[in-house]
Design a protein around this nucleic acid. Structure first.
Length: 583
RNA sequence: GCCCGGGUGGCGCAAUGGUAGCGCAACCGACUUGUAAUCGGUAGGGUAGCGGUUCGAAUCCGCUCUCGGGCUCCA
């Protein structure tokens, strides 16, 4: 487990100041181009900075370069950032024409208000800033977006300009390159280019169709998932996709989660709902018997497909969809087992992530939200258990107040991909509520009924989101154990076709995923296509190979190994698969 | 859902009021070739959908669907 530490806090701090100053310079530029502008806020972010504006017209991408030019002038003028302390009343006068600033002034804790001036521009701001505008040496405006004032969808929508800034031009350049690289790895692009999945306008937004190659990867992951679960004492269950509304009323989902559920379906006068979660189904199975404390913990896992109504604007490739398969499991245990179970799940989740090459993650503990079920005591108890488990594992975590689910607190793990971006992955949620609602019990050693404690958990998140993340993490160049086509057999001329087919047959009999490129094309074209498809091994077969019963192996990194016998190649692939090698 | 910007042959793009064009892929033919694109030919769309303006619409307007960048929200 690698803790994420801010290795050079000072540098980060300095960068924040530069970015915040860049935001002010941008605000000055926008103000001079649009004197009627009403200013929102303009902070630095982990990636750059933004500023929100209320403007008389919509900005276009062309406006960005005009604003950038203006910003360069301001930077060239090298005017100092002047810090000024004043009181609220004076501040109100300064910002009399700025309603958003006035609102901020009203909410200041004490009587002093700090303002910063550069040139003729003045902004309400706590600071700090660089000494003068000339110190902002490398910046770029990136995009325009709508953003609600103060993040509240009931308040006006402002226009937000995103930009980024660095201390040096080199750092800016490499950051922009990283963005380009990220764009190339976009799972939506790669999904199309590598023929992995599709989403259809005529079939519905947010609903994923897995093509053979994508499905191959998915089913390998699912097989791995099942076998790792069975090693850890889980059993697999299956449940239906719809259930009577009463079940969802009993569970509390109808009450707390209705906004995310699809409307009822009428079936012969009865209302049914498509499941947004799997838990009630697993509870029904639990309740088919009287359970003894000796049976606990029961760990039941399911690749359970759920459907949630997500607002149209939030859908995004595979990472935000309306139908998805959770790698779900529910653990029924007694309270004394809770901590051990949580520890086991967190370890399991980390193991799974590491198996896919994710070595950095962030752990978040989310506490009681405003809308919650159950009592505060029970919530506190559960939250403490989660906390103790993380401490036992010596995992650094951040507390996210009020972000728990309605039925219990949770641990979320977000993973960091090869480009340093974070993705929401596994989640572990304690639930004291559903056992209560469904009266889920076990018979203790005292012969009496006791309430079970439930853990909901995923170790990947959802198949869709995880695959989306994996595609980007590997940039489409999947490790050998996951690659949908592990080897492309490339005959040089048609005369080599029969031998090529024979080699493929031999490899296939060993479970190696092989395709023969039988097209009447040149070898170079076939190699190029296999490279673009990111196939890990290309087996070039010409007369030389045919005569010696060998293959010539080309790796996707360009490396060539000639004269490899077929058995040698088999064991090469096998060991790469076993080691989960990436090439 | 909200703000802004898009939707053109399988894919990537061009055409901004005058009856849609290019590259790749596909198909046919020739070539039979040692590590990232062989050459030639053929076919393919009426521009997301519906309605409107106009002599004339891919281009302008309205509505719907959908995609992208964000906001809010989330596995």
């Amino acid at each position: 487990m690698t803790a994420k530490n801010t290795n050079d806090a000072k540098k980060v701090e300095r960068l924040e100041v530069v970015r915040h100053s860049a935001a002010h310079i941008m605000a000055e530029a926008v103000s001079s181009l649009f004197p009627q502008v009403e200013l929102g806020i303009g902070p630095a972010t982990s990636e750059g900075f933004y500023y929100d504006f209320d403007l008389p017209r919509s900005l276009t991408p062309e406006d960005l370069s005009v604003i950038e030019t203006k910003m360069r002038e301001i930077i060239a003028s090298d005017s100092p950032f002047l810090h000024e302390e004043t009181n609220k009343d004076t501040a109100r006068e300064i910002f009399s024409s700025q309603p958003y600033k006035l609102e901020l002034i009203d909410e200041l804790d004490d009587e002093t208000a700090t303002v910063y001036r550069q040139g003729s521009f003045v902004d309400l701001c706590r600071g700090p800033h660089v000494a003068s505008t000339g110190e902002v040496k490398a910046f770029k405006l990136l995009s325009i977006a709508g953003a609600y004032w103060r993040g509240n969808e009931l308040r006006p929508m402002l226009q937000r300009i995103y930009g980024t800034a660095f201390e040096t031009k080199d750092e800016l350049e490499s950051s922009l390159k990283r963005l380009e690289e990220a764009a190339k790895r976009d799972h939506r692009k790669l999904g199309k280019a590598l023929d992995l999945f599709s989403i259809h306008e005529e079939a519905g937004a947010g609903l994923v169709y897995w093509h053979p190659k994508g499905a191959t990867i998915r089913s390998i992951i699912e097989d791995f998932w099942r076998s790792e679960h069975s090693k850890r004492g889980y059993d697999i269950v299956y449940i239906p996709h719809i259930a009577k509304i009463d079940l969802w009323k009993s569970s509390g989902h109808w009450e707390f989660y209705q906004d995310s559920m699809y409307p009822p379906i009428d079936i012969e006068g009865q209302s049914y709902l498509v499941k947004p979660m799997n838990c009630p189904g697993h509870i029904l199975i639990y309740k088919t018997q009287l359970r003894s404390y000796r049976q606990l913990p029961l760990r039941w896992a399911e690749l359970g497909t759920v459907y949630r109504w997500e607002r149209s604007g939030v859908l995004h490739g595979l990472t935000r969809v309306r139908g998805f398969t959770q790698d779900d499991a529910h653990i029924f245990c007694h309270p004394d087992q809770l901590e051990d179970e949580v520890v086991g799940v967190v370890e399991f989740a980390c193991f799974m992530l590491q198996s896919f090459g994710f070595n950095d993650y962030e752990v978040m503990l989310s506490t009681r939200p405003e809308k919650y079920a159950g009592t505060i005591e029970v919530w506190d108890q559960a939250t403490e258990t989660l906390q103790r488990s993380l401490e036992r594992l010596q995992i650094d975590y951040v507390i996210d107040p009020g972000e728990g689910v309605f039925y219990g607190p949770k641990i979320d793990i977000s993973l960091e991909d090869s480009l340093g971006r974070t993705w929401q992955g596994p989640t572990i949620q304690v639930d004291f509520n559903l056992p209560e609602r469904f009266d889920v019990n076990y018979i203790g050693d005292d012969g009496l009924e006791h309430r079970v404690v439930m853990i909901h958990r995923t170790v990947l998140g959802s198949m869709e989101r995880f695959l989306g993340c994996l595609i980007e993490h590997y940039g489409g160049a999947f490790p050998i154990w996951l690659a949908p086509v592990q080897a492309a057999v490339i005959p040089i001329t048609d005369a080599n076709l029969d031998y090529a087919r024979e080699v493929a047959l031999q490899l296939r009999s060993e479970g190696i995923r092989v395709e023969v490129d039988e097209r009447s094309e040149r070898m170079n074209l076939k190699i190029r296509d296999a490279q673009l498809q990111k196939v890990p091994y290309m087996l070039i077969i010409g007369n030389e190979e045919m005569n010696n019963s060998t293959v010539s192996v080309r790796l996707r990194n360009g490396q060539n190994i000639r004269g490899v016998s077929v058995p040698e190649f088999k064991s090469m692939v096998k060991s790469a698969v076993d080691a989960k090698e990436t090439v």
